[in-house]
Design a protein around this nucleic acid. Structure first.
Length: 743
DNA sequence: GTCTGTACTTAGGAAGCAATTC
DNA sequence: GAATTGCTTCCTAAGTACAGAC
């Protein structure tokens, strides 16, 4: 094993050498939370029975199990069966009352003892197009075999999207379409038509057909929509729940993914490929020992029945594009998911104890003469400070995205003395672009990692991959991996933000929320959670701004009105009336103009829609004079307001009467002030959030107990921080943290 | 040590829905 | 009551992590 010297560094060989870890065993006590949660180390009782007989001897409808409150208050679960499926009823809401966080957590390989469920819900079969709707090829309508027609439909329905305009998407779609067409016997009519050129395909009729169907659905009456929804709910009901260790728990994605065209993100080489239909024969069901096997759809068989209680999935199948596995799992509010989540955050809290030592160690190793150690140190630094992901190697059939270990020469630019620009596509092809200042020794090292003969396309960390890095990290702390740093730093950031908050009890909840969101935003920015700016963001901002101006103007008007009533007030309270002069005449005219424009649009729209209604009912239409009258009234009101401004507020008797006495006017002014404040807050929040996605960090990275603590400490209802789904997912946190809880 | 397969978490966009505005 | 808008949920893609085979 030759050791080269590069610069002043000992250069062992890239990625091939043994890794000597600075083994630092967990010599510290780990104080888990003050919760009643204990980690029980249970002996694994793994029972795996694979490839069992697909037919179950016991018919489903023979199985009857009942759930009743036992004398000591325990709930037993009731399983009844109707003709088709297990009827999972849980009397006494056992799924809600099971508080695993008060019970002590099992920490073995075994995930459960018993598991019963009804399998998966398949997508409906393909519904053929009406005979008059066809793909047009080279100007001629063609009849396709149903399998090919379905694939043409997948493309046809989306011709107005960016995907369908993407040449890679088109190429992949067309190749798969041709395969299906060939396999299903080729064009039916005109018989000898060969579909060979994508550009000659005209999908517009198919598109129009699906658009009309969509419109039809939209136009459906409320009652019809409800009927359809109820039918759908009824169909899904048996699959929504399972029985896990005797308790009713929700299943997450019980629907088998329907066939479609693969929509890869970013520049994905496989985008547009056909994702084929999944059949029962493709599906492996995972059930508890002795649990009855759900009936497969008639004429079909399940691919396999497995009884593996070391895993958390209920069903799986392999998809055709990457041959990767898709799983049906428990829902986010299930006990198993909750326990995983809890463990994740506790692991991140454990890092708190080790972080100082880890930082000391990697700072020291930044000076190591051994290239491998130096790379480990820099990578750990980047993961810790900039919350980069681990960055696993990717294949040619995937989008070219990177994380820390897979960063390449071209992804960083160095500027003396110690500035670095990161520019690369991360997960989901989201751009990571940051100009940052780094530790001087990190800068030196990065320069070294880029040193010739390294060139564009070469790995920056040529001695590392996530597995090597994680092995090293586990020397610091058991179970420490790159992703733990993201959770740790995200939650730590949130804790620090909350600590630094200056919130007064009497502040409006809306303002407290704004501060919470601002803290959440810090975390999201750290994790680079982005979203695309919605198309109408700018107009919506403009609108909100106009609204605020109008409210301000109305407030000013009331103040003027107050002065007209009691002119002496101006001398008594100069400050109160000062803003009258701040709101300039031009601004007032602008507001008046906006109101006028809005009224015009409103009246015109009202006139059109009213007449459309009348037309439908065959009633006499409104005469044009009506519209004219309305428009004139808008013009008159504009003229009056302009006059009011020009003459320096001489309010009509009618207006003065309507405004009421001093007390009333003051009350109205106060109301306007409140409305303006709220509108301002909301506008700012919305604008700040336009490109940052807060949800991802709230769902995955910020310890939910921090939000619960915030809620209790500052008196903000938890409903304002967590949606219903999130409250279900984080019940364990809501019920276990108080206002003193700390990450 | 490397490759592959499996199992799990994390992610943004689309679709659905409810609140708000007109 | 309809249209619009913004928030929530759903969907499934895209990551991380690690065990086991070679």
């Amino acid at each position: 094993m030759a050791t080269k010297i590069t610069g002043s560094l000992i250069d062992e060989q890239p990625l091939k050498k043994k890794v000597k870890l600075s083994a630092r065993k967990n010599d510290e006590e780990i104080p888990l939370s003050k919760l009643k949660i204990k980690l029980k180390n249970k002996e694994p009782q793994v029972q795996k029975i694979k490839k069992e007989n697909l037919k179950d001897e016991r018919p489903l409808n023979k199985l009857l199990q009942h759930s009743e409150k036992t004398p000591d208050g325990e709930t037993e679960t009731k399983i009844e069966s109707n003709e088709n499926s297990l009827n999972i009823k849980s009397e006494g809401d056992s799924e809600e009352s099971y508080k695993w966080w008060e019970e002590g957590i099992q920490d073995g390989v075994k995930k459960w003892d018993t598991l019963q469920h009804n399998g998966v819900l398949f997508p409906p079969p393909y519904e053929p197009l009406p005979s008059n709707v066809k793909l047009i090829y080279d100007g001629v309508p063609v009849t396709l075999p149903l399998d090919a027609e379905e694939v043409a439909g997948f493309f046809g329905v989306m011709i107005n999207t960016d995907h369908a305009k993407n040449p890679v998407f088109q190429k992949n779609f067309f190749a798969d379409f041709q395969k299906v067409l060939k396999k299903s016997g080729g064009v039916v009519e005109p018989k000898d038509t060969k579909i060979t050129v994508f550009k000659k395909c005209d999908f517009s009729k198919i598109f129009e057909y699906y658009e009309s169907k969509r419109e039809e659905r939209k136009q459906m009456s409320r009652a019809d929509k409800k009927k359809i929804k109820d039918e759908k709910d009824k169909l899904e009901e048996p699959y929504k729940y399972c029985i896990l260790d005797g308790r009713k728990e929700q299943v997450g994605n019980f629907r088998v993914e329907p066939p479609s065209l693969f929509r890869g993100r970013g520049q994905h080489p496989k985008t547009g490929c056909l994702k084929t239909r999944v059949f029962p024969e493709d599906i492996i069901l995972n059930l508890g020992p002795g649990s009855p096997v759900p009936e497969p759809p008639s004429g079909h068989q399940w691919g396999e029945i497995r009884r593996d209680n070391t895993v958390q999935w209920l069903a799986m199948w392999k998809e055709n594009i990457f041959n990767s596995v898709k799983y049906v799992r428990f829902a986010a509010n299930s006990s198993l998911k909750g326990i995983s989540d809890y463990k994740k955050f506790e692991k991140a809290r454990e890092l708190k104890i080790h972080i100082d030592a880890i930082r000391d160690d990697y700072k020291k190793k930044l000076y190591s003469k051994v290239m491998f150690e130096r790379q480990i140190a820099v990578a750990t630094y980047l993961i810790d400070v900039f919350a980069l992901r681990a960055g696993g190697e990717k294949g040619d059939d995937e989008a070219d995205t990177v994380g820390c270990c897979s960063l390449r020469y071209e992804h960083i630019e160095l500027f003396e003395p110690n500035n670095v620009t990161f520019d690369f596509l991360g997960k989901d092809s989201i751009r990571y672009y940051q100009k940052v200042e780094v530790d001087k020794q990190v800068f030196k090292s990065l320069k070294l990692f880029k040193k010739s003969p390294k060139k564009k396309g070469d790995q920056l960390f040529d001695r590392l991959d996530p597995s090597i890095l994680n092995k090293h990290l586990q020397g610091y702390m058991p179970g420490l991996t790159a992703k733990v740093f993201r959770t740790y730093n995200a939650s730590k950031t949130m804790q620090d933000q909350i600590d630094a908050m200056d919130i007064k009890a009497e502040e409006p909840v809306q303002e407290k929320l704004l501060k919470y969101n601002a803290a959440n935003r810090e975390v999201a920015i750290l994790c680079n959670h982005q979203k695309s700016v919605s198309k109408n963001h700018e107009t919506s901002m403009q609108k909100a701004n106009d609204k605020i101006q109008e409210l301000l103007w109305q407030k000013i008007r009331l103040k003027k009105c107050l002065l007209q009533l009691k002119p002496d007030l101006k001398k008594i309270d100069k400050k109160f009336f000062a803003e009258i002069d701040d709101f300039k005449k031009e601004k007032e005219l602008e507001v008046i103009e906006k109101i006028y424009e809005r009224d015009i649009v409103k009246y015109k729209r009202k006139f059109t829609s009213e007449n459309e209604k009348r037309k439908e009912k065959s009633e006499a239409l409104l005469p044009d004079e009506d519209l004219k009258e309305w428009l004139e009234s808008a013009e008159k009101s504009r003229a009056d307001l302009i006059k009011e401004v020009e003459t320096g507020a001489d309010f009509s008797e009618e207006f003065m009467k309507k405004s009421g006495d001093e007390e009333k006017i003051r009350a109205k002014i106060k109301k306007f002030e409140e409305r303006i404040q709220v509108a301002f807050i909301q506008l700012k929040d919305r604008d700040d959030n336009s490109q940052v996605s807060l949800g991802t960090s709230k769902i995955n990275y910020i310890d939910p107990r921090l939000s619960v603590m915030f809620s209790k400490k500052f008196g903000v209802p938890i409903e304002r921080l967590f949606t219903k789904t999130l409250r279900d997912k984080f019940t364990w946190a809501i019920e276990s943290a108080d206002e003193t809880w700390r990450f």
